[in-house]
Each structure stands twice: as C-alpha cells, then as structure tokens.
Write a protein that binds this DNA or RNA. Structure first.
Lengths: 343, 343
DNA sequence: TTGAAAGCGGTACCAA
DNA sequence: TTGGTACCGCTTTCAA
C-alpha cells in the first residue's frame, strides 16, 4: 500500500493525503479524519526512502565503531550505550545505523556516509587522544557528537564524557588513605582518550602524595580478561608486589581477581582490587572495593543523552557545540574487610 | 557531487555514467576508465536513498532487539554478535540498521519495517519458545533469519543456533563423573528458548543417571550478577547445599563465585562452578572448570555466518530455509584441583 | 481546502 | 556504445 493507492482509494489527490497524514493545517478536520482512518485500516506506512529523498532528511543516525584488525574487541558496554541511544531514536522516529569500520581507511568512509545520505548525523565512539575524525567531520559539515573527548583536538565539538580523571583520582586517593603505597594500574590502551585520562588521575594523585609511580606496576593494553590475569600474576610474582590494583574494566578485573586467588591471597585482606564495574549495590558490604566510572545503567543513560544532543544539533545546527561531563558514580570507602597490608 | 553534475562534468549522459560505474558491459573500457577516475577525483558516491528507491533494494539489514521494560538488559554478547554481522555486511556493501523494540507492540513494528522499506531483511534476536514473530514475518514475506530457535514453532524458518542442550548435558555429565550429586542450575529466563534447552540438557542427564533434580537447586531469571550472588548465597545456606553450580552466564557466575567466596568455601575444592564463559585458555589449569557454550569469538563468528545466511536468502529467495547448529566449544574435565566433596 | 506537476537522485527500458 | 525518458514514492510549490 503506497500513497498513490491510498489516495486513489480515498478519491483524493496524493497531495491532500500527504498533507493530512503529516499534520498540515490546511486540511479540513473531516478529511484528515477520513484519511487517518483509511491509512490505519489499510496499514499504510510511508516509504522511508522516498520520503527522505524528497525531504532531504534521512531520519537516521549513524554510529561508527572503529574496529581494527589489531584490536577487534567490542567493548561490552557498547550494548548498553546503544540501548539507551536506540530508545531515544525510537521515540523521535529515527533509525539507528551501525557502521563497523576498519580504522585504516576511515576518511573515505565518512565522505561516503556524507554522500550516500543515509544518515543525518553520526556518533563517534572510542575517540583517541588525537582524533582526526573530528576535524574531518567538521570539514564535511556532517553533524556529529563524540562519546568521550579527544584531548589533543582543539577545535570545538560536541561531546559527552564521564569524568574519568576524577574517578581514578578518587580511587587512588582512597587506596592511599587505606595505607597502600604500591598500587598497580591495569589500564586500557593509552592512546585512547579515556585511558589516558584515567592514568592522569592516577598519576596526579600519587604526585600530590609525594609518591612516584613504579613503571613495573603500570600496564596498558586491550581490556581483556587474560590481560588482567597475566598482568596481575606477573606483578604478584614480583619481589615487591602491589597491594592494590586499579583496573580499567570489569572484564579485566575478572582476570586480576583470578590471579589474586591463585596466588593464595585474599581479596580485601591481602590485596585490594578496585574496578569500573556494574551497579552492584551488594558489593558495598563485601571485601572488594568497587569504583564505578560508568555503571551499566549510567552508560545506557549516556547513550540516551548523547542521542538527544545529536538530535538537537540536527534540528538546530546553530545551537553551538554541546558538551556534558558526567560525574562517575563512586561507591568507594565502604570496605568492611580488614585494612590491606601495607607495602 | 551527484550523478547529474558528474555526467555534465564528463560530457556524458547520466545513463552512461551510471552504467560505467555499475559495471555494465556495454560501456567501452576507455569511457569506463575516464568515468571511474573522475568519480574518484571528485569524490562521487551515489546517493543510497535514490538508488534504493530506483532499484527496490535497500542494501540494508535490520536487527531487531526486543527490550521490554521488565528485562531491559542487553546481553553482553550482543556487541560481539553485531561485530561479526557488521563485518559481513560491510564486505557485501550492506548497512546494518538496529531497532530496539518494546516487545508489547512488536507486530506493528514489523509491518512498518516492511512498509517503510528501509531494509531488505531482518535478523531476529532472543527468540522465545513460542515466538510469534516467526509466523508473522513469514506472512509478511520479509526475509529473516533467527539467532537461536523457537521450540514451539513448527513452520520452517532459517536459523543458526548453538547446541545448548548438548553443552549443558556434557557439563552435567562431567560433574556427575566427578562425584557430584547435588548440582545447582542457575539458568536464564526459561521462556527464552536457549534457557529452556539448557535446562533440558541438564535434566535429561540427571534422569539418565537415575537422579531427580531438586527444585530448590534450580533457578531461572534474568542473568545479572546479583541474581547469581543471591541464588548461590541462599542455596549454600541450605541444610544440604549444592556442591556444584552450573551457571548460564559469565556475568551471573561472577555473583556465584562471590557467594562461594563469602561462604568461606574454596572453588574447585569445596564447590565447582561451571559456566558459559569467554575464551580463556588459561582456565584449563585452574581450579574452576569452565564450559563454553559460546565464546566471544564464536559469537562473533555466529554473527558473521547468520548475516551470510540472510544475504543468501535475499539474493536467492528460493534457496529454502537454511539452518546451522554450531557445536559448543567445550573445555571441561581439566580441573587440577582436588575432587569436590560429595554430598 | 484541494489538486497538478515538478522535483529529490538515481536506474533501466527503448531508440538511435 | 550512447542518450532520452519514464519511473521509484514521496514532498512541496503554485494555481485553482
């Protein structure tokens, strides 16, 4: 059932039917009602491609996920983010288009996205510190927002980020207050902006306390479980092992915990493990000390808000760069276990 | 830059340029080369909406994720699945469109998807045992494939599934062989087909061994960490606690392990925990006994293969229902810890 | 308040 | 081998 058929069925012109369905004021209420009912009864939905060709708006948003052959992992929070964004889009009548892109030839891709006209704007995921997609998109005049920030980019752009620096600074502070002096940082890839900021939070807090970080206690890699396991295992086998671990991902923390366990140590007594984790209120009274830089529900939230930012930007391109820094939900300092051994 | 401009620039008709770019044989090689080079130089990409309006093919696949208000969790493997599928689509020149849908009014959605014409086919996620989307899509003549199966649906359809029944049967067998008699099953929601099959594998193996399952040792719910924690904690506080846990998700298993830990028990000595988990070869020598019903990389694989199935179906609608059952990668029986205490 | 007709940016048939 | 033209399904201007 298309517009032509529907209008013929109603003995009206396509024009009138179109206007009736799209809420134009010049249609009589009687006609509008008749048209609406017929559309409903005959199960008419306008063809989105034709509509967007005619209007110039795709009513779709692209999400571009860079996937290189080297690190092809998909961040597990991705699903939650997308769920939040998708919800917003659905409400606004937008579609979500996912593009996985080999980051070797990104530039082409964005040019194509622009030319193909499938989307009205894009969300950039996983920005690196020097993110060249940002100037590129600005140049292409394709509306975009960034999930995260790019420290080395100076041109203005819209973004939404978690305050990673602060989250890791507070976690470090907390461990120092507990008496820890040998704290390990199991970080993500540090050319990624979020990982860089986390390290900054960690290092600056150590510096303020007059301590210098031990390079042997700092690792940076893709956030897999086995990476956490190997890192922790190696560090614990050291002459002067760490007494605490600051871990950048809950998946990686799984591996760390296992290594701690295998080393015959007890979490919360011999070793503290702090991680970015799920919203597990029951942990408050456990031996582990969790840190939340982004709970699953807050990631969902972030997705929804970022989507709204982009829709605003598309509706009113003049509304200038929008930015939002979300404070991490920190639940720390509630360990009921005995204070960890000091180094 | 659109076709009209490009053709004017080349002093050719739109027809010829279109043919040259789309590999039609009747264009002279000389012309084709000239056209290609100009297109490249001027950064021409055809408008996808116009193209699909003209050809009737959207060159896009929809993925529909049901999200009800009751269980709005996104399965963490979702990201991996999508990565695999996205890769296939990218290679084939297809886009991936994500639709999150409140499962209360799914029917409308599929009708709209069909009418809107944004996609050439859809992938169905998270089928329930009685999945009414399957007859609906058949009726709508919208090509589709299912990730998983629907036990209570009798009409033929295309699907790809992991052999969940077998995986859980073998895991149960293994625990029985170790001497366990009180085995707990911490399952997902059992109206979901995969959870139902897992329970079948568990129960049938117990039956074969002449045992009856204790209802107190079986739970079914959304696979969160806290669900695992509470279930295990309660069961372990029982008069006759289980000596082993079969857990349906690695996230849920986190909670189970924590409960075991808090109960002062040691994994692999006092209690065995078997779970669907990541591809962790290092676990082979650990105390835990993992079972893999779907590793992250195999989920990725499944996404890619399912996407290929759907593309085949779209290209040749007559090729009949395609099905594929993937055997789980099982890594069990390698516990180096002492045999668990028998009940 | 309604309708005719010209696009939107391509493809594909038919004629040259 | 090339070009003219109708058409895909909708919106929107202009005229009635």
């Amino acid at each position: 059932m298309n517009l032509k058929e529907l209008s013929r069925h109603l003995n009206l012109s396509q024009t009138t039917v179109s206007r009736a369905l799209n809420g134009y004021p010049e249609v009589s209420e009687k006609t509008r009602k008749r048209v609406r009912e017929a559309a409903e009864a005959l199960n008419y939905s306008p063809n989105a491609r034709a509509k967007s060709l005619a209007t110039g708006r795709a009513h779709a948003i692209g999400h571009v996920i860079p996937i290189s052959t080297k690190h092809e992992m998909v961040n597990p929070i991705f699903g939650d983010f997308v769920a939040g964004a998708g919800d917003t889009y659905a409400r606004a009548g937008y579609e979500m288009v996912l593009s996985l892109v080999d980051d070797s030839r990104e530039e082409d891709l964005y040019r194509q996205i622009r030319a193909r006209g499938n989307v009205d704007g894009v969300v950039i995921h996983g920005p690196r510190m020097a993110e060249d997609r940002i100037p590129l998109l600005s140049e292409l005049q394709l509306p975009f927002v960034v999930h995260g920030r790019a420290s080395e980019v100076n041109t203005p752009y819209s973004w939404l980020d978690t305050n990673n620096t602060r989250a890791f600074a507070r976690a470090t502070r907390f461990l120092l207050d507990l008496g820890h002096r040998r704290i390990a940082l199991i970080n993500g890839l540090e050319h990624m902006d979020f990982a860089f900021r986390r390290r900054e939070g960690f290092l600056s807090t150590l510096r303020e306390a007059g301590l210098t970080a031990d390079p042997a206690l700092m690792r940076s890699s893709e956030m897999t479980e086995i990476y956490g396991y190997r890192s922790a295992r190696d560090m614990l086998a050291h002459d002067t092992p760490p007494t605490a671990f600051l871990v950048a991902s809950m998946i990686t923390a799984l591996g760390v915990r296992r290594a701690v366990h295998e080393a015959g140590l007890e979490m919360g007594r011999d070793v503290s493990v702090i991680t970015h984790d799920d919203d597990l209120s029951y942990l408050k009274n456990g031996h582990d000390v969790p840190i939340f830089t982004a709970t699953r529900s807050s990631v969902r939230d972030a997705g929804a808000r970022l989507a709204e930012m982009l829709l605003d930007l598309i509706r009113d391109p003049g509304c200038g760069p929008l930015t939002e820094l979300m404070e991490a939900e920190l639940i720390i300092g509630s360990s009921t276990g005995p204070a960890p051994t000091k180094a």
